[in-house]
Computed example of a mutant assay.
Amino acid sequence: MINRRLRVVLAEDSVVLRDGMVELLGARGCEVVATAGSAPGLLAAVVEHRPDVGVVDIRMPPTQTDEGIRAAVEIRARTPEVGILVFSQHVETTWASRLLADGAAGIGYLLKERVARTSEFVDALYRVADGGTALDPEIVTQLMRGGRRSRVDTLTPREREVLGLMAQGHSNRSIAALLVVTERAVEKHVAAVFSKFGLRATGTDNRRVKAVLAYLAENGSQWAVTDASATRR
């Protein structure tokens, strides 16, 4: 249950959308400590306020191309403790890969239509602030198309379905509810994925993250989608 107030810096050049998001976040218990309409303004706000998470539009002035993602990458380098959730009108897999090149922890990427779904958006913010990852299912789908799937091809349809849900950040309990099976059945499928991917238990066991990393890496990416709790399984 969400029981703390997130401190957020919001970067969006559209004043109307920015004001609407400030109102939305405030109504959901978040504190927007600063807003920015440009990448330099975002960087300055993060340095000054050290928020829990920065919410960043990918396309920002002056070129409306990748200023937001560049700023997000710089924030990751300067203040890795600050979570980053970027959003875009379209699926931009190249930019997502740039942002996640140094690791998936504390990163989110949502389509703007997802932001309108308030509960999903706020849940994603908290997940990112807690060191997890929140990627839009449409982005996951795009990244999983094409390429070789040597290890993935060894999975049964159900195992692939379970892994796909893992890639969207679902826990075993959540997957069980979605597939209308027992949690024990999901655990067996997850164990089978680990085995087929050659992932052995270690002292700091994060096989769940590694399985999704391997899944997406075989489809042209180097990152995973998971929540904070998944990294501890």
Rank of each mutant, 00 (worst) to 15 (best):
E183A: 14
H90I: 11
A77V: 12
V22F: 02
L125N: 07
E81Y: 02
V209N: 01
V115Q: 01
A34D: 14
V55H: 08
L179W: 01
E159P: 09
S221F: 03
V128S: 08
F194S: 11
V190Y: 08
P62S: 04
S195V: 06
S38V: 03
A176R: 02
R4N: 13
A104H: 02
M1V: 14
R158Y: 11
A27M: 11
V55M: 06
R149N: 12
R76E: 10
H170E: 05
V181C: 02
D52L: 03
R78H: 12
S195A: 15
L17Y: 06
G164Y: 01
M144A: 11
P40L: 00
S97K: 14
E218C: 02
L125P: 05
F194R: 15
K210A: 12
A36Y: 00
L99Q: 05
A45T: 09
E113P: 05
L10R: 14
L85C: 03
A45F: 09
M60K: 04
G132K: 02
V15N: 12
Q168I: 02
G68C: 10
R18P: 08
N219G: 15
A185G: 07
N219W: 00
A217Y: 06
G164T: 08
S14Q: 06
L163I: 00
L100G: 00
T154Y: 12
I69F: 04
G169R: 05
E138S: 11
T154G: 07
V8F: 09
P137G: 04
Y109N: 05
L199I: 07
T231N: 04
V55F: 05
R117A: 11
R149T: 10
T133Q: 02
V46D: 09
E218P: 05
T133G: 03
G103H: 04
T154A: 13
T141F: 11
T204N: 15
I84G: 02
V16F: 15
W223K: 01
E67K: 04
D52T: 05
T204E: 15
V140D: 10
E67G: 07
D136N: 05
D205L: 04
R5G: 03
G37E: 09
T231M: 07
V91F: 08
E183R: 14
V115T: 13
L155V: 13
A34E: 07
E12R: 03
E48W: 10
G54L: 00
D57F: 09
F87R: 03
Y109G: 01
I2Q: 12
T35A: 06
R78E: 07
L143N: 06
H49G: 09
A185Q: 09
D19P: 04
S229F: 10
G169E: 01
R114W: 10
V128F: 10
D52P: 05
M166Q: 12
R98D: 14
A192E: 11
D153N: 14
T141E: 12
L111R: 10
R78P: 04
A27D: 15
D102E: 15
S174G: 13
L25R: 00
R76W: 03
L179N: 03
A45M: 01
V82L: 13
V16A: 12
K210F: 02
S150M: 11
R5F: 07
R200G: 08
L43E: 15
L213G: 00
